[in-house]
């Protein structure tokens, strides 16, 4: 029921919002999208710092020491496959098949775990050689940039576990679906950041 009033010219004007939260999922997704933009700013600052510090070796190891082309190729394949698996799971959710969504989210989780496993393995292999963030400006920014992306991947994986539990315990409520949509945004965004890491760190460094 709308509430009208007449203005001074005698025109009828609607005074109030009738259904303030008609589409809770898209409102929350928009809010999360803005939040992801702030995450994009964070990564932009890290990439800019990387460009500044990339040659500051301080007599320490050069880029070749951290470059593992086949590992980074495998990581790329894993992160993009994980994104695809998650997207397909969300498609199945749209087809009212939440059990299939759970399976595909499990696949995405497994591929993401493999990604983070390779990264931790590489970081550990560098650390035992004494190649740590404290060694030089280049290594500080390298570990910060790649590590921040890895931390995002880890957060995304934890998020997937929580969502799997909530899908089982709460069912597909508006709130749960809204969180899955936001997780999809988050997970796609990490793939995009990885494209930038691959280009501006690994390809640019090897060139």
């Amino acid at each position: 029921m709308s509430v009208n009033a007449s203005d001074i010219d005698g025109n009828s004007v609607d005074l109030f919002v009738e259904e303030p939260d008609h589409d809770a999922i898209s409102i929350k997704a928009f809010g999360f999208w803005l939040y992801m933009l702030s995450d994009a700013l964070l990564f932009a600052a890290l990439f800019a710092s990387y460009q500044v510090l990339a040659n500051h070796y301080a007599g320490g190891p050069h880029f070749a020491a951290v470059n593992q082309p086949f590992h980074q190729l495998a990581e790329s394949v894993l992160i993009f496959s994980s994104g695809l698996a998650f997207l397909h799971g969300m498609r199945r959710l749209g087809e009212r098949a939440p059990d299939a969504t759970l399976v595909w989210m499990g696949v995405a989780l497994f591929l993401g775990l493999a990604f983070i496993g390779i990264e931790i393995h590489d970081f550990y292999a560098l650390a035992v050689q004494g190649i740590t963030p404290l060694r030089s400006g280049f290594l500080s920014i390298y570990f910060t940039l790649v590590g921040t992306h890895g931390l995002h991947i880890f957060v995304g994986l934890c998020w997937m576990v929580v969502m799997a539990i909530q899908m089982r315990t709460k069912g597909c409520t508006t709130e749960v679906v809204s969180r899955l949509v936001n997780l999809k945004l988050f997970w796609m965004f990490q793939s995009i950041v990885w494209v930038c890491v691959f280009i501006f760190v690994y390809m640019w460094g090897a060139a």
Binding site: M1, V3, A5, D7, D9, V13, L15
Partner: peptide
Amino acid sequence: HGLTQLAPERSED
């Protein structure tokens, strides 16, 4: 536009 009444005037609104 002379519409400074912000709260609903009628109880049912």
